[in-house]
Computed example of a mutant assay.
Amino acid sequence: MGLSPKDRKLLWGNAALRCSWCQKILLNDESKSEEPSVFGEECHIVGKNPTSARSEADLSPEEREVYDNYILLCGNHHKVVDDHRQKFTVEKLKNMKEEHENWVKTNLDSSEKQAIYKRYYKEIVNEWAERIDLEYWDGWTHEITVHPYPQMHSKRFEKFSELNQWMLTRILPGLVEEIDIAFMNFNNVLNDLLLTFQSQTTLIMDGTIMRTEKFYQHKGGSSFDVERYDRLKKDYDEHINLVTDLVFELTRAGNYFCETVRDHLDGEFQLEAGKLPVIIAAGICEEAVMCIPQYSTAGREYTPYHNLEDFKVKRYERDLHTEPLEES
């Protein structure tokens, strides 16, 4: 179940992104780590499961997943309190949490806390930008949107799959809700794009390239079935269109995230580079066109991308999309 977004925001905000024991800011030092990251842990005070530390208290499962039953700790001290559960009782951890939050109120002014929050989000944003190849956006998306052979380098696909998992496991404390929403929206689109693209690919060039397979083609060994060919060709065309539309949607999601970062965190983020484009062409010999897909203002009021099935219907309402296939 876990914490609700509201309770997560309270936990991280009231602790000022610091361990409630040692008061260390829960970010790696950039100068000492090649991959700066958040390493705070949301720890149960009363354990989640019967075998967990301090689980004997009479609380329902729902009562164990609220702000009052969590304390923010670094990884080292989370291990200590759970390994020495007789010493670190429920009462002791509640007192530790209360004392730390009082210390935050007394010793940190709002500007100091805002500086910590800003650093927290900047670490995540900068790593995201590097992992998604933001500077080469039009290049790698072009590899997918050029018909009739959507393709991607195998190493890039692996890299983006790792990004997908990295984004999924980031701790988003809700301190800047708009950034959290845009971040999760991007990852939802990325996940569905990777799964959809991979579902009909074959490896070529000694496994270095993933290319969409023409699964409608007759491969011999039986008589040519016109009806089967037409049906599979339509399925293939629809698959190509869906993958293309998901690339457009990912570009929208990327522009949405970058704009949200500029609005709430860093006004100069990607400002010089500008908006993310996609380059499309109707065929190998057709002239390429650069487009900049974006969500409408109204579409940003909520999470713009919900799920793949919803998108299959609503994609035709977007500013850029493939043409629906004619019913046979």
Rank of each mutant, 00 (worst) to 15 (best):
D230M: 12
D68Q: 12
F311A: 02
H264V: 06
F183M: 05
T208E: 11
H100S: 02
I284N: 15
A53W: 05
I181A: 05
K9M: 10
F186K: 02
I279N: 06
T260M: 04
I292K: 03
S328H: 14
H77D: 02
L72Q: 03
V226A: 12
Q198D: 07
M152D: 02
P173G: 10
M184P: 11
A282R: 15
F183K: 04
L246M: 02
R119T: 14
A253K: 00
P148I: 08
K155T: 07
K234Q: 13
M210A: 06
Y302F: 15
T251M: 01
E178K: 13
Y302N: 13
R8H: 11
G139P: 09
K118N: 10
E286N: 15
V226C: 12
E143S: 08
I124N: 03
D29T: 06
T244D: 15
F183I: 05
T201P: 01
N191A: 08
N28S: 15
M290R: 09
L193E: 01
L134V: 10
E162L: 11
I171D: 12
G13M: 06
L271D: 11
E35F: 13
S223L: 11
H306F: 13
S223Q: 15
H218R: 05
W137F: 01
G75E: 13
H264A: 05
N187M: 04
E213K: 12
I144T: 00
E259T: 03
E127P: 10
V81Y: 02
T251D: 03
E272S: 14
L27S: 05
K122C: 11
K79W: 11
N107C: 08
L134P: 02
R156K: 11
I71L: 03
K87G: 11
W21R: 08
S223C: 11
W128Y: 08
R156M: 05
V81E: 00
R131A: 01
C74K: 01
I132S: 00
Y236R: 04
T201D: 04
T141S: 01
E99G: 08
D319Q: 09
E178R: 15
G220T: 08
E99A: 09
Y229P: 03
D319C: 15
H78I: 05
Y216K: 07
S161D: 08
R252E: 00
D138R: 03
I209V: 06
D138G: 04
R8N: 11
R252H: 00
V104S: 00
I181W: 08
L59P: 02
V66S: 04
N164I: 01
E101V: 03
L276K: 05
T169R: 11
T51R: 14
F269G: 06
Q270S: 06
I181T: 08
A281S: 09
T169F: 14
R231Y: 10
N191Q: 10
L242A: 02
L265S: 07
D206A: 12
P293Q: 00
F197K: 00
D109C: 04
G220I: 07
N49H: 13
D237T: 04
R85N: 07
L73V: 04
P304W: 01
A253Y: 00
I204V: 13
E91D: 12
Q294N: 10
D206K: 10
K48R: 14
L320K: 07
Q200C: 14
A15E: 03
Y316I: 07
Y120F: 14
E213Y: 10
D310H: 12
R8K: 14
E227L: 09
Q200W: 07
L3A: 06
L190K: 01
T244R: 15
G174N: 05
